[in-house]
Design a protein around this nucleic acid. Structure first.
Length: 415
RNA sequence: GCCCGGAUGGGGUAGCGGCUAUCCUCUGGGACUGUGGAUCCCAGGAGGCGGGUUCGAAUCCCGCUCCGGGCCCCA
């Protein structure tokens, strides 16, 4: 009986992995160009960390187990909480703002479907210490650039939780519940809630109107007529984005069910991804105090790495491979030549199957090698190797001592 | 937790009650003892699991498992 992969997990074959590494490489280059530095946190944490952030309800969706000392452990379902925990525990002293990024696997016990897996990867950043709209602008621009670098089709939606909260402020504690319903776009539940709570007709109507507001900057004008709110930061944020040619849709219906979000929130949606369209989500928040730290403003986002990889269609360039082909008895020469070439940074493959020359060349062809170096009696006695261009079939005699420079130059030309 | 579809060699498939389970690809070898891609030949490898119906099941029925898509959820 074969052993299968656990449900919701995947194996990545070389081709897939090369693509993923290419995406990762581009992301790293961009975040680092913004001055973000990488951090890593444990794969598992006390489940309490995530419960505090997201509520008891998420227990259902987490991989939770007891370790041998009866500690309740959870495989991380996301990375913002661990990063903020790290900030609170041991990284709160550096000069503000702190710019960090992460790339790691996360685990959620959910029903798998297209672009949703039980083990998945998140690439994200946290910008900690600033409450300014400039911080929000920076991370939005950063996410925007990252996704653009993959040449994928997406739509950026920006909202602000403060507007709806202001509107709901007369409800006091009960506002959170309403925010959750708005977040879910549960219109029925919302109407029922308003009725039960005896919320005034006036507020109810205004909430519905705000939820519908979607479009360009002009939407703010309409919003101002509905609710008394300081739109200054939002306006400045949007102008800044516009001056940098960042396309966005202002969507005041974006809400968040959780109280730690403080202001700007944003989501990136991809076309052509079925039900799981969201490829990036973020916003400003305050979490540190929930984990025993000082109240600290932060903003950040997480990109659904697997989802963007599915959309990324470019085939990364592969560096050329050289195959050393040898006749029986010349294995030592083959290995030596290979070592020499590798030390110059070339990718070199030797025969380890003790096959015939013919089969070795056939294999070279199968793996799409660029060049083959032939080593046998003739070559060794003359102090020369034959270098065969596998694309053209042309063959050159090259002196043994010149082989590395000869091939290095060939590779440079090929670029 | 709910709904729909599916499961045949490593990958892609045909058969849909009855010969040794089809074809392509793949992998290894050979034709061809110092030169790849072509061709030919040989070899390798398969009906998810359990039960039922039947003289006989890959095929029909039931259950389970797993996979895919959607709902819910999405921190």
């Amino acid at each position: 009986m074969k052993i299968e992969r656990p449900r919701g997990t995947r194996d990545f074959l070389p081709e897939e992995m090369e693509k993923r590494r290419e995406v990762e490489k581009r992301f790293r280059e961009i975040v680092e160009s913004f001055g973000y530095r990488e951090v890593a946190t444990p794969t598992f944490e006390y489940s309490e960390l995530f419960k505090r952030k997201s509520g008891e309800g998420i227990v259902e969706e987490m991989y939770i187990f007891q370790d041998k000392s009866k500690r309740e452990i959870a495989l991380r379902p996301e990375l913002t909480a661990p990063v903020i925990r790290m900030f609170v525990n041991e990284y709160s002293r550096p000069p503000k703002p702190i710019r960090v990024y992460y790339f790691g696997n996360c685990f959620r016990y959910e029903r798998p479907q297209k672009a949703r897996y039980r083990e998945f990867w998140q690439f994200g950043v946290e910008l900690i210490g600033s409450a300014s709209y400039l911080a929000d602008a920076e991370v939005i621009i950063l996410a925007y650039n990252m996704l653009k670098s993959l040449k994928i089709d997406f739509e950026l939606n920006i909202g602000h939780v403060g507007i709806l909260r202001k509107l709901l402020s007369p409800l006091g504690e009960r506002a959170s519940k309403a925010m959750r319903l708005i977040d879910k776009e549960d219109k029925k539940g919302l109407m029922q809630f308003f009725a039960e709570q005896n919320v005034g007709r006036d507020i109810e109507e205004k909430v519905y109107r705000i939820m519908e507001l979607k479009g360009g900057k002009e939407v703010i004008k309409e919003a101002k007529e509905i609710v008394e709110f300081d739109f200054n930061d939002l306006e400045r944020l949007l102008s800044l984005l516009e001056s940098l040619s960042v396309d966005y849709i202002l969507n005041l219906g974006i809400a968040r069910g959780l109280d730690y979000y403080t202001g700007t929130v944003f989501e990136f949606y991809a076309k052509d991804l079925g039900a799981q369209r969201q490829i990036c989500g973020g916003g400003s928040y305050e979490l540190a105090q929930l984990f025993g730290g000082e109240r600290t403003p932060a903003t950040g986002f997480a990109i659904g790495f697997d989802r963007v990889c599915e959309l990324f269609s470019e085939v990364p360039k592969k560096s050329p491979v050289i195959v050393v082909v040898n006749f029986p008895g010349f294995e030592n020469f083959a290995f030596k030549v290979a070592s020499k070439l590798r030390s110059k940074g070339l990718k070199v493959v030797v025969d380890v199957m003790e096959r015939s020359l013919k089969r070795q060349l056939s294999y070279a062809n199968d793996i799409k090698a660029s060049y083959a170096i032939l080593i046998g009696e003739e070559e060794v006695s003359r102090g020369e190797f034959k270098v065969k261009d596998l694309a053209t079939g042309k063959q050159f005699d090259v002196r043994a001592e010149d082989i590395t420079t000869f091939l290095s130059e060939l590779m440079r030309e090929g670029e």
